[in-house]
Write a protein that binds this DNA or RNA. Sequence first.
DNA 1: AATAGAAATGAGAATCTTAATCATCTGAGC
DNA 2: GCTCAGATGATTAAGATTCTCATTTCTATT
Lengths: 141, 141
Amino acid sequence: METSNLKKAGLKVTLPRMKILEILETSETRHLSAEAIYRELLDSGEEIGLATVYRVLTQFEAAGLVCRLHLEGNQAVFELERGGHHDHIVCNQCGRVEEFFDETIERRQRDVAQHHGFAIKDHALVLYGDCVDSACPHRPA
Amino acid sequence: METSNLKKAGLKVTLPRMKILEILETSETRHLSAEAIYRELLDSGEEIGLATVYRVLTQFEAAGLVCRLHLEGNQAVFELERGGHHDHIVCNQCGRVEEFFDETIERRQRDVAQHHGFAIKDHALVLYGDCVDSACPHRPA
DNA sequence: AATAGAAATGAGAATCTTAATCATCTGAGC
DNA sequence: GCTCAGATGATTAAGATTCTCATTTCTATT
């Protein structure tokens, strides 16, 4: 558990923050909603309020420790920032989220923005499709 | 005003639907929130409820008459479907929305998805940056 | 043009996600 | 251990969107 990240971000090392960080680090699902993290906390017997989960996640985002993603659906999901930028593919059937990075797309985005007179600062790219892997529980028979 | 579009979609031709379609067709801003459309209706003296605006826009979306976009910010915006698919660039300063289409990005997205075992169905791509045009009222001096 | 039936509307309530409030509690340094 | 700034939690609030249901409006038919 990297408590040093918290200190670096100017955040006190508290139990809620450590527990939330731990869940983000150890959950096999890398993209978790605030609600999902809250439920995991409850399940492991922690008495941490939902408001704290939202507050802490927002602070983590500001500190660059996590990324907030708005996938289709009503609630945002959070993922631990592991260094490299990447975009996402989401399975319409099973909801599985895969990460990818494509330099061609990245470069092209910069070019397009420039042509339109924009200095690009950020982008949001999410692909939606159907898993054709055996991994997807909903794949067509 | 294309009332035939409504009929084709199996929607009764009613005053609220025609008025909302008219606003989408004639507004100089091509990307409007439900709230913004509602305000335009009120300004032109129409007695149309906000619930109806949301309902009608959702139906229009299902019928393929409009697209719903989730730009950063809390509310979705709607744009009239004019045939061609495109993505968007948004100015962080003035909120201006530009449309673009780039075949290289489109193709690359399909390739990436395929490599990850997905049959891509849809995607959401939004670039965020700062206008460097004289058009942007907030451009750096 | 009057009418009936189905569909659409409007006002407000409800829902859902997220943020704000504020009194109480806790961690870091002394 | 003590102090106090900062953090927490329970609740309330806010904003966007959807739902409910009684009333109204189209469309097709007399």
